Computed example of a mutant assay.
Amino acid sequence: MTFATGAIVANLYYAQPLEATLAEHFGASTGAVGAALTVIQVAYAVGLATVVPLGDLLQRRRLVVGVLGLTVAGLVVAASAPSLAVLGSAFAVIGVTAVAAQVLVPFAAQLARPGEQGRTVGTVMSGLLIGVLVARVVSGLVADWLGWRAVFVLAAVLTAVCAFTLWRTLPVVAPSVRASYPRLLGSVLGLVRDQPVLRLRMVYGATSYASFGALWTSIGFLLAGPPFDLSDAQIGLFALFGVAGALMARFAGRLADRGLTHPMTGAALASTAASFVLVWFGAHSLVVLAVGIVVFDLALQGCHITNQSVVFALAPEARSRLNTAYMTSYFVGGATGSGLSAALYAAHGWTGVVVVGAAFPTLGFLVWLGEAVARARTGFGLSPAAEASRS
């Protein structure tokens, strides 16, 4: 499940190191290519809202494999796209169906032993994060050697292999609810209404991931231009500095199991915002930029894993729907940051990207401060289960 989650979610990020190449191939502006990449994030948010809740209604193994078949079809279209418009349409299909990874994450939490939920989620999420990083590296290298279309051919083959393997190995678990699809979707809104802790975690996730969308949507343009002039392969390899985030995932899961979710969240949001100081100076130094990305990814994933550990403990029978609410807001934040980044880079360059990237986690930290004041009478560091009971 860890490997498959990484391989599936990688499909969302293969295009990021190819921004300059796609702009040149299709004769498009940086803004147009940035908008095409934003389509992936928006489509993923749509899939989170409409597909992931089915994990509580349908047999998860069958759902995951069926959705991955559509992902393969989208990747084949992307590999053969004659225009940027067709490529953007393929990106929409890929984005909606790549949510299969988010069906697997709550499935892993369901299968975890008591007291090890945070660690289990952290393990699966470490695979997801490594998939994000490897996607950029593989994309850059394959595009340099075989052309950008080969990237999506390789992705289609890998996704098909994962679908077959998951069908053969995943356990068959009966769905947790019996309801109509409209009622199921409505219950997601009910969870958001009834769970104040969920609402807070949605805010923390959305504001932190908006900074991710802002940074990685435009960094390819920065690295491809002067003074760096990096190739697609070099841009892809640069993403390896984000491996720190994958290493943080399991550590953050252990801290969550120990009940340190609240202070960890505040520290992560503050560090995410502060990392953009280094990212800004990195416009003239690859070393400084790399350090900034390491700090950024450590903080971002610390916040994300902590959020998921808390959210999955709120209502164990509704984990897919809880994940839907949280991850939909998460990727809406990412899509917002991505769209603003593309527009601001075209208008104001790297400084515009840094401003929007730092603003969102700063907003999240201010909300966290408000929560800290409200919690002052009861103390800090509640476990996920205790957080759930407070709702």
Rank of each mutant, 00 (worst) to 15 (best):
L18Q: 02
E19M: 15
A20F: 00
A20N: 14
T21G: 09
T21A: 15
L22K: 06
A23M: 08
A23D: 04
H25E: 14
F26N: 01
A28V: 05
A28P: 03
S29N: 02
S29C: 06
S29I: 07
T30G: 15
G31F: 14
G31Q: 13
G31T: 14
A35L: 14
A35Y: 04
A35I: 08
A36G: 09
L37E: 05
L37K: 09
T38H: 05
T38W: 05
V39I: 15
I40E: 03
Q41C: 01
A43Y: 02
A43P: 06
A43R: 08
Y44C: 12
Y44H: 04
A45H: 07
A45N: 05
V46E: 00
V46F: 15
G47A: 11
L48Y: 01
L48C: 08
A49P: 08
A49D: 05
A49Q: 02
A49N: 00
T50P: 02
V52R: 03
P53W: 11
P53A: 00
L54D: 14
G55D: 03
L57S: 04
L58D: 01
Q59K: 15
R60M: 00
R61N: 01
R61C: 04
R61G: 08
R62N: 03
L63K: 00
V65Y: 11
G66R: 11
V67C: 04
V67S: 10
V67D: 09
L68I: 03
L68A: 04
L70H: 09
T71Q: 04
V72A: 04
A73M: 08
A73V: 14
A73P: 10
G74F: 07
L75N: 09
L75V: 13
L75A: 09
V77Q: 08
V77R: 03
A78D: 13
A78P: 12
A78R: 10
A79M: 07
S80K: 09
S80F: 10
P82S: 12
P82A: 13
S83G: 13
S83L: 03
S83P: 08
V86Q: 00
V86S: 09
L87N: 01
G88F: 08
G88M: 10
G88H: 09
S89T: 15
S89A: 15
A90N: 02
A90H: 03
F91L: 04
A92W: 07
A92H: 05
V93A: 08
V93H: 08
V93W: 05
G95E: 03
G95A: 02
V96A: 14
T97R: 11
T97N: 01
T97S: 14
A98C: 13
A98P: 02
A98G: 06
V99K: 07
A101N: 07
V103H: 02
L104Y: 06
V105M: 10
V105G: 04
V105D: 07
P106A: 07
P106H: 04
A108T: 05
A108W: 12
Q110L: 13
Q110F: 09
L111T: 12
L111S: 11
A112L: 03
R113H: 14
P114V: 06
Q117N: 01
Q117F: 10
Q117I: 10
R119M: 14
T120H: 00
T120M: 05
V121T: 11
